[in-house]
Design a binder for these strands. Sequence first.
DNA 1: TTGTACGCGTTATCAT
DNA 2: ATGATAACGCGTACAA
Lengths: 343, 343
Amino acid sequence: MRSEGKNTINDVARLAGVSKKTVSRVINRSPLLNADTRAKVEKVIADIGYVPNVQARALALRRNFLIGLLHDNPNAQTVMHVQAGILEAIRDTEFELIVRPIDRGSSTMLADVRNFLERQRLYGVLILPPVSENELLAELCRDVGCRYVRMGSVALDKPEHMVASNDREVVTEAVNHLISLGHKRIGLVAGPHGFRSARERRKGFEEALEAAGIRLPRSLIAEGNYTFETGLAAADRLLDLSPRPTAIFASNDEMAAGVLHAAHKRGIEVPGDLSIIGFDDTTIASHIWPPMTTVHWPIISMARSAALKLLADFFGDNLAAEEPSLFPSTLIHRASVAPAREP
Amino acid sequence: MRSEGKNTINDVARLAGVSKKTVSRVINRSPLLNADTRAKVEKVIADIGYVPNVQARALALRRNFLIGLLHDNPNAQTVMHVQAGILEAIRDTEFELIVRPIDRGSSTMLADVRNFLERQRLYGVLILPPVSENELLAELCRDVGCRYVRMGSVALDKPEHMVASNDREVVTEAVNHLISLGHKRIGLVAGPHGFRSARERRKGFEEALEAAGIRLPRSLIAEGNYTFETGLAAADRLLDLSPRPTAIFASNDEMAAGVLHAAHKRGIEVPGDLSIIGFDDTTIASHIWPPMTTVHWPIISMARSAALKLLADFFGDNLAAEEPSLFPSTLIHRASVAPAREP
DNA sequence: TTGTACGCGTTATCAT
DNA sequence: ATGATAACGCGTACAA
């Protein structure tokens, strides 16, 4: 059973007494093939433990079975969830996943990606936010003839190239929830302006307040960059205000955890004195104390769906093509929100 | 500049008026080459935006530039850290990373991996715990002729195939710290017995107590499976004890977070009434409240080093071969530990 | 220093 | 239904 990786299609052909094209037909499940011949070849394949060489196959087909994940997302949980979703989609297929972090901000980013795509000639790539929001990158994919599917917080591309969530709406819903509990001074820890998701979530926040006729001072909006530390710093600014907010919506869970941390440091009771809502529903949201009310962002499903979409024309059956493009996020009620109570 | 991926080495040769072998020499930086010729060829390459085809190259070289990450580690942070370390090591090289989660427990696991390795013919693989502890898997790698480097909590293989941490020692140190603060009833939330890391950490725990002449009832040891939920459940058992432990060491941060959560639920003050130490130093350790004292497991460095080790004979210069094999973990003091106080 | 001829392992064409 | 032969794009002997 010890196959030194030495056996080739020629060995199989010789041992089976057929041509290598016939072996190829067996491997590729060609329908026009004598059952006896097939059985004979399959026996030889099993006996010597023959495994096709994917590189040779790729060369001949001018196409390989690798899909890439392009990302510059700082959140480890998110990236892992995405990988999990993709891997779930390609499990039991011959596709493999190559991960490729890219450096947004680097002046050579586009050139780097172009080089990567042209070298590897991947079957296609999945692109995570925030770099998925970069129009030039999508254009680059088209230019080099690489299939792509983008993931994001709002539809930025045609359905076959996009899987999106409805961040703005669900944030409005979350903030409405706070308003319905009597909160009037609601702080926002926004994400970095360069992120479309951050802008969408901020709009959702503002729209909710506007609809409720609440005008908030600019000082109630602080900006972070989606990390715990910046969430902590933003919360420090917000909680220094007088009167301070009775609730804070943070644009992601990392920052929300920072807000909670800041509250703990000051001895501010959550949710009694301060309600907090986050976004993402990463594990930390349910692990910290108190368990945090947050928006569940269905990133695993989105990633799985994005991968299926990418493989749509491979599978032929258009099951994959019918993958949804919009994945609604939902508000998860836990224990970090309570009715407003004046300090 | 639009290169349709159509240009081949032949096009370059034709346009430059040289043979394709000469082009090949330019690409592969052969030293014996006329400077003029080289410049001429390089100009053509730049002009038409020629990029070598990696699959063809792989076929000819009978070797590719892909490394694999085999893992079945349930901790997202850990896996991401490992990926970060590997990617750091292969940045600016022509290597790419293929991630391949595997299903420990599946009866076909070894066959699946064999199939994967034989199909992809990777340059080499890095193996994460716990599956890195599986001797059959290492044997499989040798059998199919695939380079490998294992990561783990104790040296299980020859230095060129292994990067390890010193879990047992550092846990002893952590527990000694608790003992020095007057703790005598110290609970353990052990990891699953199938994990070598869990057994090592448990031994470190037991050795510290033994050295201090502390005999603990079996009931002070609870087992989880490295997840938050099982840590929570284990802590519930431990905290039901009477008298209850004044300190708990959990074999990883996830479970330690569960312990902290359990304490919060019961209104047990941490660290006043209960000290907690975790293991891993993942982000949650510093993000939860109170910030958790834990063992820093230098997984990023280990992964980077493991990748460099894997590429040792590629780089030729034996800088990579000299990568260390042992990475000491260190105790990080934060705020979840205080002197013992009787309930 | 440069070129020719051939091999790498597979699939595609076009016969039979 | 099956086979001979030519791609696919690149690297290596060996020759020039």
